[in-house]
Every structure is written in C-alpha cells, then in structure tokens.
C-alpha cells in the first residue's frame, strides 16, 4: 500500500513537473552558475585546476539541491492539496517519500549533466569513476531524504527560505565532508581501504536518515 500510494503521488508530481518544467530547468541553470562562480573564485594561473574538482562538484550539488526543495511542498499549498495528500491509508509517509524521490530524481539528473561540465571546465578526468559515482549516489540519497523532511517541516514557517539552508547544511555536514574526502581520495588513486571508511560513513548516515525521517515527519504533521 505504501509503495502504491507513493507511486501514485510520484506519478502526479512527475506529470506536473513535465507540464510546468520550471523548477528543474532553474535548478540546472543554477548548478551551472555555481560551477562558473567556483571557477571565478578558486582558479588561479599556474595552479592545477583539477584539484578543485571535488569541492566544486559537491558544493554545487549541495547548493543546487536546495533550490527546488521548498517548492516541492509549497506547491501543495497552492491549490490547498497538502492535507488531502497527507491523509492516506499509509499515513503521511507516501507524501514524504514521493517528494524525496522527486528530489533524488532532480538532483540525480543534475549531477549526470553537471559532472562532465565540471570535468571540462576544470580540465580533469575521473580517476576512479565507480567510486565517485557511488559516493555521489549515497550523498544525493541522504540529501534528498533529509531535504524533503526539513522542507516538509518548514513549509508554513516564516522566513523558511532563509531557515532551510541554516538547518539543512549543518545536518548535511557529515555527508558533505565524507563525499568530498572520498572524491579527493579517489582522484588520488587511493587504495580501497582508505575509501571504504568514508563510503561506510555515508552509508551509515543514509541509513539513519532513511529510518528516522518518516517517523519524525509523521510525528510532526499528525493529521
């Protein structure tokens, strides 16, 4: 039932996204802009640009992943559908999961498009593509779930646009640190043992967030 209702809500969001297109397009443009700004800020004559890749990549994804986050839930307010979507046979879980999946889809596609651009702009190549992609997948998963939770909690709070990153970024710190470190090590051809620790940390983080977020969400919305 949970999966069926989640799929129903996800289908609805996909259909709306395909029709309005706005959010995803801007998210992508914003990500591109982040990369450019990074190049302005950190590239210097005579220094290897490739060293900046991990930082530029992860921070770009962190920032662009915040752009459409609140919109996922404020969109439900527009036609007054939030409560209708919360009161389902599987509780409010399908709504949160469908929003997290939407976010994961958006950020996943953004990553696949922005990664080659970063490599071209910073004149670099992936040393161990498998490891970097695995780290990115783990990072985006945790970010999507936690982001959806925080957006759901803040949807009616004043100044939510400001408060969202203020809460989200410190909570995402372990993922960001681990993601950047894993990418740095992967680029330096580090052995698997060095990488596993960081990937394991990301896995633990994702497990925690996936387990706890639905419960906290249901506890707070209680409709």
């Amino acid at each position: 039932m949970l999966l069926r209702l989640t799929w129903l809500l996800l289908q609805k969001d996909l259909r709306i996204a395909l029709r309005s297109r706005e959010v995803f397009g801007f998210m992508l443009l914003f990500a591109l802009l982040c990369v450019v700004v990074f190049a302005f800020g950190f590239l210097r004559e005579g220094e290897a640009a490739a060293a900046q890749v991990p930082g530029a990549l992860w921070v770009t994804l962190l920032f662009s992943g915040t752009v459409g986050l609140l919109r996922l839930f404020t969109a439900e307010d527009e036609g007054g559908t939030l409560q209708l979507a919360q009161r389902t046979l599987a509780g409010p879980h399908p709504l949160l999961l469908s929003k997290a999946l939407m976010q994961l889809l958006f950020s996943g596609v953004t990553t696949l498009l922005i990664l080659p651009i970063v490599l071209v702009f910073f004149d670099a190549a992936l040393a161990q593509p498998g490891v970097v992609l695995a780290a990115l997948a783990l990072g985006l998963l945790g970010q999507a779930m936690l982001g959806a939770l925080v957006a759901a909690l803040l949807v009616h709070v004043r100044l939510r646009e400001v408060l969202l990153p203020l809460v989200l970024y410190p909570l995402l710190a372990p993922l960001l640190i681990a993601g950047v470190r894993a990418t740095v090590l992967a680029q330096a051809h580090a052995p698997a043992e060095a990488l596993n620790g960081w990937l394991g940390l990301m896995l633990a983080y994702d497990a925690l967030v996936l387990a706890v977020a639905p419960w906290l969400h249901a506890r707070v919305v209680e409709v």
Partner: peptide
C-alpha cells in the same frame, strides 16, 4: 477557500 485541486492537472486527473 482553496479548491483542493492540483492546478497543473486536469479535472479528470
């Protein structure tokens, strides 16, 4: 005062 409808979807949907 809100219709409780998704504005991008049709009435049928």
């Amino acid at each position: 005062h809100t219709p409780g409808l998704y504005l991008e979807l049709s009435a049928l949907e």
